[in-house]
Design a protein around this nucleic acid. Structure first.
Lengths: 340, 340
DNA sequence: TTGAAAGCGATACCAT
DNA sequence: ATGGTATCGCTTTCAA
């Protein structure tokens, strides 16, 4: 089967390439191509299974019908879920998505953005994690439509879809406080990650509302690279005198997994001795012993909304659609917090 | 910042576009462009942050430096992990990846393949699930290099990277048998999925080795769409007289999760009354109560090898690299099988 | 209604 | 060593 090109079909049908192109792009009517010709072309194309080379089309129209997705790590539950929804939604618009993982490295991130730009993506969804605005400049310079997820820059005007990290943790912390817990530890990652900062603030705010002084000793900020090792020591310190926490909030699902393993190793009863709450979930958290109380992010909405917004930007619609979304996470109460 | 094109830099430097293109593609030396000119061009390009439009380049060279990835569902743990490795590896070759989810629908799959072809991907990694070879024909017709993962066609000559589903389940089944279990249920998805068939065969083979007649009553094949409902009934039947299984193997991680929830609802003690083993893992399976014995797939290897093979194909190397790989899954023994 | 022809931005062949 | 220029496949303007 030899490849069939636009000009082949024009030649074989004795019409111009213009006609063929127009008809195949559904512009036959508005350009008053006769019904006869249209039928002929359409049929021929269908019968021979013609499809345009989208590189050529893209080059010609200045549009690739591709969007880029840059996230810390596609293998992570949270991002994988979002990626799934982004793809499904993008497909509705006839778009396909290219993804790339930044591994939380800002340098990497900048490179990836540049790479996406070269590849002429029509828009970008960026789950940048570092609070670093160079990449944003890059995008603005290139006039590339984009939507931020997982992060927002209050000081810059951007489109974004984020979850309310602050409120999520605040609610969870208050939940623990209402259950009578008073020495609440907070295990998180070092700042840089804006989302992490918000989560910490939510924790501190809740404590203040209960007139408890947030103690630095109860907050453990782990390095983004060595957290697997550091968490052991951190937990050791939290459960030992003089800290002796009665509960711990982990700021992300993988810290929860790691933490729970370590608590077991230390032979600490959850939730009896130490209650725990996780920000974000892993697939089997409801089956864990004990089932993990979690702050759940609306992954589907994050994906869907970000694509909707992006498409709106790409199409240049000044439609009424909101270009920013602050979504609410929900607290799923299970046994690990000591409530049930 | 106005966009800079190849011809701009040629004009500004008073050289030909040819020279610029050659130099920028590291073909300066082999084409004997003077060092002076080369320096000039390189510097100018760097200083002005020039990068080629890859659509144009792709059109011109007939290569997009993009590979396509078609999988049932990127949100699934298993595929997300593979996708991560594929991307990392592809990046090493200067490639970027486009993904699309087929949702296990063969029609969908064919469409996606066509779409990838239109988009001029240089190669395709396909985790097709249905035993349907039309898509393979499509690929061969288009002479598009591809690698199959998760499936193989013994009768067709293709590149593939698969895990030994048969042996994995066989090993797990024998493990249960060696622990004294005799009435082993098998919960899986309806055939069509080649991998699923292999798993079933592995189960049956192990039973035979122990001189046990594989009973159809102990095998529950659920529909790909309604498995969430069907599994409840299936489990009810398995644990009730006359079946009364003493153990169950679930042929995929999400069936395990669902199944475990149902067993709990039925108040059945795992592993005491019914031991369970899962094919494939979910992130927190080691934390579940009881920790789940699982047959673990080498996701990293699947991803890495498939890209290596694909790149070899794309580059047309007739190098010695093996174009097929049969990887071994490993049995991770935890408490749910009753061993510990 | 239809078609010729000029792009889109880069590559690479063929001269010089 | 360097430069013109045809070419990749499609879109789109403009004239007929």
């Amino acid at each position: 089967m030899k490849k069939l090109y636009l000009k082949d079909i024009a030649k074989n049908l004795n019409v111009s390439t213009t006609a063929v192109s127009l008809v195949l792009n559904n512009k036959g009517d508005e350009n008053k191509i006769s019904q006869d010709t249209q039928q002929k072309i359409l049929e021929y194309a269908k019968r021979h299974n013609y499809v345009a080379n989208s590189l050529a089309r893209g080059l010609s129209r200045g549009k690739s019908e591709t969007i880029g997705l840059i996230i810390p790590n596609i293998s992570d539950d949270h991002y994988a879920k979002i990626a799934g929804h982004i793809e499904r939604k993008a497909k509705e618009y006839g778009y396909v998505v290219m993804y790339a993982s930044s591994n939380k490295d800002p340098k990497n991130e900048a490179k990836l953005i540049q790479s996406m730009i070269n590849r002429q993506v029509d828009g970008l969804i960026l789950a940048s994690t570092q609070h670093n605005s160079e990449d944003i400049e890059l995008l603005k310079d290139n006039k590339l439509p984009f939507v931020l997820i997982d992060r927002l820059y209050p000081e810059i005007d951007t489109n974004y879809v984020v979850v309310d990290n602050f409120e999520g943790v605040q609610k969870a912390t208050k939940h623990l406080l209402n259950l009578g817990r008073r020495k609440i530890g907070f295990v998180t990652l070092k700042p840089g990650l804006e989302a992490m900062r918000q989560r910490l603030l939510g924790y501190q705010e809740a404590l203040k509302e209960f007139n408890i002084d947030p103690s630095d000793a109860l907050v453990k900020e782990l390095s983004n690279v060595d957290y697997k090792d550091e968490i052991k020591e951190a937990l050791g310190e939290l459960v030992r005198f003089p800290n002796s926490v009665d509960s711990i909030i982990f700021s992300t699902h993988y810290l929860t997994s790691l933490g729970l393993r370590e608590l077991r190793r230390l032979n600490i009863k959850v939730p009896h001795e130490v209650a725990i709450v996780s920000f974000d979930e892993l697939g089997a958290f409801d089956l864990v012993d004990p089932p993990i109380t979690s702050i759940k992010q609306p992954g589907a909405d994050i994906g869907d909304f970000s694509v909707d917004i992006l498409m709106d930007e790409i199409q240049g619609n000044e439609s009424g659609i909101n270009k920013t979304r602050m979504l609410k996470p929900s607290l799923i109460i299970r046994k690990s917090c000591g409530a049930l």
